[in-house]
Amino acid sequence: MISIAIIGGAGYIGGELLRLLLGHPEAEVVAVSSTRLAGRRVDGDHPNLRGRTPLTYVEPGAVPEVDVMFFTGSGLDDVDGRAELRQRAKIVFDLSSDLRLGDPELFRFHYGREHPTPELLGTATPGLPELHREQLRVAELVSVPGCMATAATLALMPLARAGLIEPAVTVDGRVGSSGSGASAGEMNLHAERSGVLRLFAPLNHRHQAEISAFTGLEVKMTATGVDAVRGVQAVARTTAKPGTTEAAIRAAYRKAYADEPFVRVVAQKRGNYRLPEPKILLGSNYCEVGFAFDPDSGQLLAVGALDNLVKGGAGNAVQSLNIRMGWAEDTGLTFTGLHPM
């Protein structure tokens, strides 16, 4: 049994980490921090956990030394405090955007500020098991990718590895309101969010840099907020190289994911769920990927879908933890999702 602390446990990602880790047979959550809510019970903000834990929030400074620590929010405005906390754990998982990019210039372009500790960029192992499983087995610092970056990367990676597509790719990411976090402000009020299709990042969404780094493709990305609470769907428009066949595309996906426990290939000719969509994945750690192809024009559409809080965040972190500790990858992650919803 390993000891775990969650730094910043009051938000949606913190709640998902708690939900997953409280049911994990090899993990014990010993501390959950929140500066704003210190002293209050964690199930006050996460009512789905009522009866599952007596934990109360503590100040970050009161977090003890543990085996594993999860950060759910940025530490860029308290560099010294974050560094001190990292010293209290043998292994650290960072679910914020702080360490996702390896290039300080890219970070400044996408986040509009200088990174205060650029020497840390490129030092974390990406928490994407399908691409970095061997590195995760020995990692001590892990940076979990963004939710839309994960969906798009898993949809595009087989095509890129097989050399089936041209490098220029356009990604349209769609995400529910929980993707903005629990304190997103006025724009996420029900009166403002309900019924919308809000194109909140029409150009150069920050996840495009992550997708480019993972796949080697030239990615441009937009992002739209949709009328849902959970869920991500990433639709990537590409062009197949001359001579590419549908059989070769399908074979590339099957080869890439034949042994992956949490990626399912969905590209069917009929039925209600012919291509990936997040509804049936909510609460699960699954990502579904698929494609549509027009051999006459060469247009190739790659699609990925997942729950932004699970496979797009907390679930990816727990899966990476399982790999790091040598446990079965699906430990604590066997929930399949619900249908109908």
Rank of each mutant, 00 (worst) to 15 (best):
M1Q: 09
M1I: 04
I2H: 14
I6S: 01
I6H: 04
I7K: 05
G8A: 06
G11M: 03
Y12R: 03
I13E: 05
I13N: 00
G15D: 04
G15M: 04
L17M: 10
R19I: 08
L22P: 03
G23F: 04
A27M: 14
V30H: 11
A31M: 11
T35A: 15
V42Q: 05
G44H: 12
P47S: 05
N48K: 11
R52W: 06
T53N: 13
P54R: 09
V58R: 08
V58M: 04
V63I: 15
P64D: 14
M69S: 10
R82P: 01
E84Y: 10
L85R: 14
R86T: 11
R86L: 15
R86V: 14
K90E: 15
V92K: 05
S96E: 03
S96T: 06
S97H: 14
S97R: 13
L99I: 11
R100C: 15
R100Y: 12
D103P: 14
F107R: 05
R108N: 08
H110P: 00
R113S: 13
P118V: 06
L120K: 09
L120P: 05
L121H: 09
P126N: 07
R133P: 08
A139P: 02
E140W: 05
V142M: 07
V144L: 03
A149K: 01
A149H: 02
A149M: 04
A155N: 00
A155H: 01
A155C: 09
A162N: 07
A168Y: 09
T170M: 10
V171R: 03
D172Y: 08
G173M: 04
V175Y: 00
G179F: 07
S180H: 14
A182H: 12
S183C: 08
A184E: 06
G185E: 08
N188G: 08
H190C: 09
A191S: 07
A191W: 07
A191I: 08
R193V: 03
V196W: 10
L197C: 10
F200K: 12
A201G: 02
H205I: 00
R206L: 13
H207I: 04
A209N: 03
A209F: 10
E210T: 04
S212E: 04
K220S: 15
T222F: 06
G225F: 07
D227P: 08
V229Y: 06
T245G: 13
A248H: 12
R250E: 13
R254I: 07
D259N: 07
D259P: 02
E260V: 05
N272F: 12
L275R: 00
L282A: 09
G283H: 03
Y286N: 02
D296C: 08
Q299V: 07
A302L: 02
L306M: 08
V310I: 15
G313D: 01
A314L: 00
N316Q: 12
Q319Y: 02
R324Y: 02
G326V: 09
E329T: 00
L333M: 11
T334M: 02
L338T: 12
P340T: 07
